[in-house]
Design a protein around this nucleic acid. Sequence first.
DNA 1: CGATATAATGAAAATGAATTTCAAAAGCAT
DNA 2: ATGCTTTTGAAATTCATTTTCATTATATCG
Lengths: 143, 143
Amino acid sequence: MILEKKKTFNDFAASKGLRSTRQRDIILDIFLSTHEHISVEELYLKVKSSNPGIGHATVYRTLKLFAEAGLAREILLHDGQTRYEHVVKGEHHDHLVCTGCNSIIEFEDETIEKLQSEIAARHGFLINSHKMEIYGLCANCRR
Amino acid sequence: MILEKKKTFNDFAASKGLRSTRQRDIILDIFLSTHEHISVEELYLKVKSSNPGIGHATVYRTLKLFAEAGLAREILLHDGQTRYEHVVKGEHHDHLVCTGCNSIIEFEDETIEKLQSEIAARHGFLINSHKMEIYGLCANCRR
DNA sequence: CGATATAATGAAAATGAATTTCAAAAGCAT
DNA sequence: ATGCTTTTGAAATTCATTTTCATTATATCG
Ligand SMILES: [Mn+2]
Ligand SMILES: [Mn+2]
Ligand SMILES: [Zn+2]
Ligand SMILES: [Zn+2]
């Protein structure tokens, strides 16, 4: 499925007339090797540790491309850092965000998604994406 | 209900031992006179037009107090500006955000809220707040 | 192949929202 | 009023992100 994502990006790049570069390959490899919800800075540091030459701006630019290509999702929590997570085709999830330890629990709820569609339809609204975050304390942090 | 909010803030201020200042009164008045989801900068400009002396920092600081006092809610959309909206006691709503014209449609859905609680409970998670934003095109912008 | 055109990169500068600093002003208890 | 503490506002600072622009790399074409 890593190969699949690489193909997704290559197809996207081709369709956009983007050139294939060593930097984008490296950043994609490293992004795909991560899990969780990684901040741009975190990814940049990972990238730099094996490829000191790659610059800040390239990482920012490339992650935007990944999001555009549909293989990454931008996540804005309340800490002033943009994060990215993997997009799994045909899947969607939302987040329980613990304000105690910053951990994130993912969940999906088919019923909520359906209700969202109904609400949008009721307003003549065409959904492109949505985000839902529940903030509070995880089981560990509760006491 | 404007008086009620002022009382809410005064009680909050009293309980926190905050001093009552001309600036906070003015900013509260102007905030309460606004509608929609106003950015800090927008509010600052409004404030400054009638009270040129009031500074940027004070507006930022005061809005945080309003949020803490429970009469304003901070909203982060995807435009890099923090916005604030009024909190109506006992009410909650979420947002349909049009990426075409930046308009916002508010909605409430009791069932979704209930499902959120269930999900949280299932994970032993204690909800403090949540946000749900649906992005897309409003009826006007669709075609 | 080269040569040429154009896109991508990266270091550094710029931007912009938000926060901090700190001296002066204002509020409050006595 | 006095003295103590909080608040204010201008300016400086921070910090993430974007932009600039000279250089380098990639793709295309003869
Ligand atoms: Mn996730
Ligand atoms: Mn609203
Ligand atoms: Zn936690
Ligand atoms: Zn619209």
